[in-house]
């Protein structure tokens, strides 16, 4: 019985660690939607590109890991800004369905491009770390690092949004887009900055995922839907709601997977999601 409790505790701890990572991933998507009012269906594919960027720089060009990761964040940030400027901006005032189709198209475009460039092989960084042992629990080091870095990313984003002119403008534009020019703010510029920031968060997510998972062109599909559902669960565009939902969802996956088979964790988590949608279609912290 004592052993059992240790394993349960381990599952809870792993759930918290996973929750931190999911919180980071959902923050970027929520930020984009909350400010620009467009859902990046291809968000997870930006993360996939970031993972490949780190992989290629580290294993093929021999960059040390940290500079490769910093560059990976930069690559995805630039990709996010470009995505806005060249793909979203032309459809900014179009019907929501057209915006979804355009970003959905980008999903397949990025996937196909990655397949052409890197093939369909599973790649990995080959970084090995010894697990962290606390008492009788053994916790994977990359997960702890991912948790800490994700929280740091969330905190940095929070500071940016509350302490800087650009950050406050990002929050302001999400409330009233039309009068921003009266403040001397060029709305498109704020959108590009927001997209770059969303991209940077995806890039940071990529750096943390690449420590734990193999890379392949379709990896976005394994966590993209989860991140999207978490955003909806918390209230799409509501950053705080996304954080709360991330930790709830992660516990369902981790503890649910502990009591049953790991796949059951996902089944329970998605069932919970559907139940919440009946009860609060606007999400846990969503308005209306």
């Amino acid at each position: 019985m004592e052993i059992f409790d240790i394993f349960l505790l381990e599952a809870v701890v792993n759930g918290i660690l996973l929750g931190g990572l999911l919180a980071l991933l959902s923050l970027g998507l929520n930020l984009i939607f909350g400010v620009i009012d467009v859902v990046w269906i291809c968000y997870a594919e930006l993360i996939m590109i970031g993972m490949y960027a780190v992989f290629v720089l580290h294993t093929q060009y021999g960059w040390p890991l940290l500079p490769a990761m910093a560059a990976g964040v930069g690559v995805v940030a630039a990709l996010g800004a470009a995505l806005h400027q060249f793909v979203i901006r032309p459809v900014l005032t179009a019907e929501p369905i057209n915006q979804l189709l355009v970003t959905g198209g980008m999903l397949f475009l990025l996937q196909a491009a990655a397949t052409l460039a890197f093939g369909i092989d599973f790649r990995n960084l080959g970084v090995r770390m010894t697990p962290i042992v606390v008492g009788e629990m053994s916790i994977s080091a990359p997960r702890v690092i991912a948790f800490a870095a994700a929280l740091a990313g969330v905190a940095a984003t929070w500071l940016l949004l509350t302490r800087t002119y650009v950050g406050i403008a990002i929050r302001a534009i999400s409330q009233d887009r039309a009068i921003m020019p009266l403040m001397g703010v060029n709305p498109n510029r704020v959108f590009v900055v927001t997209s770059a920031l969303g991209g940077a968060l995806a890039g940071l997510g990529a750096c943390l995922l690449v420590l734990q998972y193999d890379i392949h062109p379709a990896i976005g599909l394994t966590f993209g839907p989860i991140v999207f559902l978490i955003c909806v669960l918390g209230g799409l565009g509501n950053m705080l709601g996304g954080l709360v939902a991330s930790f709830i969802f992660a516990q369902f996956i981790s503890v649910g997977g502990f009591f049953l088979h790991i796949e059951w964790g996902y089944v329970i988590a998605f069932a919970f999601f559907i139940a919440v949608m009946f009860w609060r279609p606007q999400g846990i912290l969503g308005a209306k």
Partner: peptide, 11 residues
Amino acid sequence: ENLRMGAFSSR
């Protein structure tokens, strides 16, 4: 923060 937005162009 509203006042800060008013001063966006002359920080």
